[in-house]
Design a protein around this nucleic acid. Sequence first.
DNA 1: GAAAATCAGGAAAAGGTTTTCTCGACCGAG
DNA 2: CTCGGTCGAGAAAACCTTTTCCTGATTTTC
Lengths: 338, 338
Amino acid sequence: MTEEPGPPAVVRRVGIADVAAKAGVSVGTASKALNGRGRLRDETRARVRSVAAELGFAPNNVARSLLTGRTFTVGVITTDSYGRFGIPVMRGAEDSLAAGEMIAFLCDGRDDPIRESHHLRKLLERRVDGIIVAGRRTDPRRPLGDDLPVPVVYAFAPSSDPDDCSVVSDERGAARLAVEHLVNTGRQRIAHITGPESHASARERATGMAEALAAQGLEPVGHPLFGSWTEAWGRFAVAQLLRAKEDFDGVFCGSDVLARGVTDGLREAGISLPTQVGVVGVDNWGLVAEAARPPLTTVDLGLEEIGRRSAELLLEAINGRPSPGVHVVPGHLVVRES
Amino acid sequence: MTEEPGPPAVVRRVGIADVAAKAGVSVGTASKALNGRGRLRDETRARVRSVAAELGFAPNNVARSLLTGRTFTVGVITTDSYGRFGIPVMRGAEDSLAAGEMIAFLCDGRDDPIRESHHLRKLLERRVDGIIVAGRRTDPRRPLGDDLPVPVVYAFAPSSDPDDCSVVSDERGAARLAVEHLVNTGRQRIAHITGPESHASARERATGMAEALAAQGLEPVGHPLFGSWTEAWGRFAVAQLLRAKEDFDGVFCGSDVLARGVTDGLREAGISLPTQVGVVGVDNWGLVAEAARPPLTTVDLGLEEIGRRSAELLLEAINGRPSPGVHVVPGHLVVRES
DNA sequence: GAAAATCAGGAAAAGGTTTTCTCGACCGAG
DNA sequence: CTCGGTCGAGAAAACCTTTTCCTGATTTTC
């Protein structure tokens, strides 16, 4: 780092003053012409605009922000390194934000509170108009901080403070959709293979399944099999069901990865899908669901929609219309062949 | 949208003027105290700092940027919707950027030139200090624009202009690593199953494999089997090899997804892995590689490293030390059980 | 034909920080 | 005792737009 810094890359950018000078008007007038404000002759307006275009003028939003106090910028803090869940949420959020001419800073919190608060400080220094916190699990999380000067929306992982604004998926509803699909396709004896009981999503989906079965007047097959979110556990759990000589014709899996393990396990045990057993997963993770044999029927939790909704609520809050509380986004069933 | 806008959320933030007033100094002095500039008594410096901490003062970076012309902000434009390749690149980039106290705007170009140039304009308006373009394929891409006022680095997908700064993976090197591993574990007759020939990465890897085999004095088994990047093609290609009664004891697959299809195909044909046939993939995509049976040995293209390097080169360019040309980042082998 | 209203555009402040310039006070030296 | 130098700190410009207020000119209205 001892080397001499090179030339400072002088690219004097054209400012509104250059436009004004060339168009023969004052900067104030030029500003009005470009932004459609004030009272100006059409001819003047057109002249300024054409000069601006000719010079390739791009307004300096930094100056504008300083004046207006708005940066048209939001921060997104993810906790899952832009993984499976953060990404679709991000994409949805970007959709809504772009509609409001806003743009997002992306920060990866990596589940580390220190990193997170460091990012938070950086975002506030840059005067973002609002912040979205995109979680990785559905378990409630500690709020970002109290008394923040900008609105915050929690996406996917709700804040543990019910007065914060959170947007979450409908976990029980997802289970209900899965069960109803299985029942509608003639399944009566349905088992549940899912992730660790320590995960709220696993618990909620199990509960939702029990409720949905009860509503249909059906009994579950055995207890929910809690394990890990892996294919290996899916295969293992199937073996367990078969060994226990459980009589089942449907399996609701807590995730697509799990479901893939389950389909492999069943197929390799000589059980034909979907003839003998129907399988439904959760996530609608294209890569996994489509590569499974047969392709998986699964519940899409609507992650993109969660992102979109979060951004919309954030924009509303920025405009002085906050919507505290937990907002639930429904999922939907994606029917493939399983 | 006709509703009355609510109260404008008045949270008068504490500015440096507040700190200065409470510390009994001028704003200029306060600024110097906080930034360690100028000549001040230690006592004064300490007093200002403690007052700033007490008041929770956070400098307004917008004002600072306006003055210095630096925003300590870069834009990242991805073309793959933050998919398989964009994400690790992003993460690596964020690593390096954070080290320089910088933060990234994320824009999803979605392979649409219109969207892309829209994002570009937004980024320039916000006066980013530089831009990283993260591609999805290794095929060269059209430059972002000419005569941009800020430095640009192309990550993964190089710019078609060789004078631009691009950071790419070592595709041939990856093939060489795979082949050498197979040979070192006793394989002599190696086949190649890969993606579409229209993809530069498929062609490069095939070429790299041919070179590596030649260097070892070996002949390839048949021609490279070009297809698609899917498990189904992997399984199908295996069946094709078996039907043609090709004698092979190793397969180099153009991707992990493909390799997973290949392992499934081989296993279901009664061939034991890795005893009879060794398989090596490319990507080191944890989810896929670890779920395969057996877990895949694969070449990691070093995507995070590409991201890190891109950001480093960008920071250097921002500081007036550009590094035009194509920079190749080596990959490395990740040995699992296949 | 004069007062009033409208029109078109200019001048200047504001926004929060950094940085340069300036200035008074104090020190030691001659 | 005065002069030059250093030290510590303040005043003000600068960054680039937007916006408010103002002014001269033109048009409208009795």
